[in-house]
Every structure is written in C-alpha cells, then in structure tokens.
Amino acid sequence: MRWSWLFLSLLLGFTGCAHSGVPTLPASHGHLMSEMEAFQLKKGLPSSGMWDVAIGAEVAPKPPLKLEPEQAPLVFEEAVRTLGGTPGEDAALSAFRDIVAACVAGLAEACRLESEAFTGPKVISPAAFTYPEALLRPGAFAFMVFHCRIGADGQVRDCKIVEGARLPGVEQNLAACQLARYRPATISGHPVSVDYTFHVRFVPQGITLNRHQELEWARLRVRQNPESRSAWLNLARELAKNNPGDPLYPQAVARAYFLAPRSGWAASEAAWQLVQSGQYAPALSAVRPFVRRSNNPYVLETAAAARFGLKQCTAALAEQQKAVELLPAEWPAPERERFQRKLQDYQSACAPPKAVSAATDPR
C-alpha cells in the first residue's frame, strides 16, 4: 500500500485555507471570517498580516506591553531608531514588540510598519518525516505536532512533542524536525529566533476524509491532547465550518482563545460570542488588539458591535463603515446587505435627537 504524508507548518497563529473562494451561505460567523482571510490572501488583497499578535506559538506568551495613545508616538520612534541601527536579537525583538504595542494603541504608522517589518523563516532543507512502519502496515492515520524554535542562525532546536507522544515513530520524527534548516526570520532585516510548530499528518494515499471523519478526528485530538492549542483551534474551526450548532462549539472557541489569546481568529470569534450574550466590555477587550491591524470585515464588525453595546457610537460607526467598505464585490450579496443594514441601524441609533422648538403661545 502506498502512503502520502502532508506537512503543514504553523507560524504566528494559523491562516485559513489558501484554496478557499467565495463561501456558500448559510455559514457561521467564524467560518466566514476564515474564508474572508483566505479570500484576501488568494486575491493578493491586504489581509490581517500577522494573524497572531506576537512571536510565539505553543508556549505561554509574555504579557504584551500596554501603551496609552499619547505614549505610542515616542515609543514607536525609539523602536524605529533601534531597528535602524545594528541591534542584537533581544533588542530587535523588544523593538518589534514596542511597535506592536504602539499599533494596538492606535498609531496607524506603527501598524503599517508591523506588517512590513517581519519576515518569517523560509525553508532551505525540509524535515524528512517518515511514516512509522507500525502504523503503516495496519493502515492507520496519524497526526503529530512538534513545537520548536528556529534560531537566528536558521537551525531548529528546543523541539518538544505537543501531540502524538504515544505514537510509534514519534521520536524519530521529532529528531527529523531538528535536522531541518531555514533562512531565519527577520525583523527589518535583523535575524531573530521564532517559535515554529510542525504539523505532520499521515494519510493513506488516495483516501480523503469526509466531513464527519474530519470532525471526529478533531474531537479525538482534543480528547488526547487537552492542552494543545493547535488541537482546540482545529476543532473550533472544523465546527465553525461544518457544525456551528454543535453545543461544543462555544466551548471549543473559548478553550482555543484561552490557550491561544494571540490568535486573531480565536479572539475575534470569542468576542463575537460574547457580543451575542451582551458581554460587550470583555468582547471589546478580546478583539481590540487585532482591530488596528485587521482588514477582515468580520473582525471589524465584531469590534463595532462591542463598541455599540458600550454606547461608543462614533467608534462603532467608524468600525462598521470600514467593514462595509472592505467587503469585496464578489462576496455573497446577503452578507453585503446585512453589513449595510447594520451600519444604517447604528446611524439611526447614534443620530442626535432632533431639536424641539418651543410652541408659540397663541394668546
């Protein structure tokens, strides 16, 4: 029997399916958000750029720097000066985090530089993964996830098993990760180390899983690996696409957001669900870090709904207006109409009350 293996890498969050086109309705908010990101990438349109705010994948993130709007310009200028010199790796990473913080604080110039400054690692010599003989013979499917670091020298190191620890051959494939070589990631041309997650999926050649099988595999992954952010993100997206009415969907989104708070998809979808239950402040807190850097109308729609619920009319109108403008002409007409109606609802609700003139006393 012949076998094929599919190697997927996940850097700075996950990005959706590059082959996707215009979605078919009805579809969940979470799936439409994924499809929009994929559509923008396919068309070469501005997308959300780094779908994960900071450098890192499976490991626990450092608390992000929080800036007040008035602090952002000075912090940004200092970061630009640092990157314009010859900083070491730590200094370059620190400067980049300052740029991210300035973007989150509302500095548009910082958002533009953030999307331009970072270049991900490029493979030179890929990992030579091999399907374990013990699994190949009985025709078993297998999925392994390894979290590593790609150093400023392009070498892969510090690998650990995230999923598949009990599978035969996992140590052999873990070692294969560390033999791969990359051009390192850079920030404004300065090499830096980044977290990198290898996903290795072994599937019998010629076999395609149907929707039910993909969902069952996604459920199995979280049962076997309850602390894997990759597993929960995968399950949440599978449910968003194939069964958003499943009672597990809100739990999967919440768990994905808890484990991967810097994932734009998880944060935005968690925020959308919070909006639906009237929890506007936590919704805005979840989605706010992604709004400034996002060109995804569904992220902006979520922020607008949270701000409207908090009676921040000016900001809500601005976010919804931008969301309407960013919807491509190819997008399903019912969705474009829905976005426009919501904008009109906000405009009506936020309009100042008409002045009432004093009545003239006829006497």
Rank of each mutant, 00 (worst) to 15 (best):
S115R: 12
Y182T: 01
L6C: 09
H147K: 13
D153Y: 10
L284I: 07
K322W: 06
T197K: 09
A72R: 05
G189I: 05
Q344R: 14
S94N: 11
A304V: 01
P138A: 12
A54C: 14
A355C: 03
D246E: 08
A270H: 08
E337Y: 00
H212L: 14
S277V: 13
R112A: 14
M1P: 11
R219M: 01
E78F: 02
L113D: 11
S20R: 11
R219Q: 02
I124T: 10
P73L: 04
E301R: 15
E35C: 12
S230Y: 02
G264C: 03
R336C: 02
F118S: 02
C313N: 04
A318T: 04
K322N: 07
R363W: 08
Q178P: 03
P26W: 10
T130C: 10
A359E: 07
A333F: 07
V104H: 12
Q224M: 15
A303F: 02
R112G: 14
A108M: 07
K311Y: 05
A127L: 02
R307Q: 15
A236H: 06
N243H: 08
F39D: 07
H31E: 13
R338P: 05
N242A: 12
H29Q: 12
P132E: 00
V145N: 07
R2V: 07
F146L: 05
P226H: 06
C350K: 04
F143G: 10
A95W: 01
R288P: 00
K43D: 11
P247Y: 09
R221H: 05
R166C: 09
A266I: 05
L327Q: 02
E319F: 11
K62F: 05
G49S: 10
Q279E: 13
E133Q: 12
G154S: 06
V356S: 10
L248D: 01
A286K: 08
P46D: 13
C103S: 03
M36W: 07
W51M: 15
G21A: 10
V203E: 12
Q340I: 03
Y298V: 00
A165L: 09
E216Q: 13
V324E: 03
L8N: 12
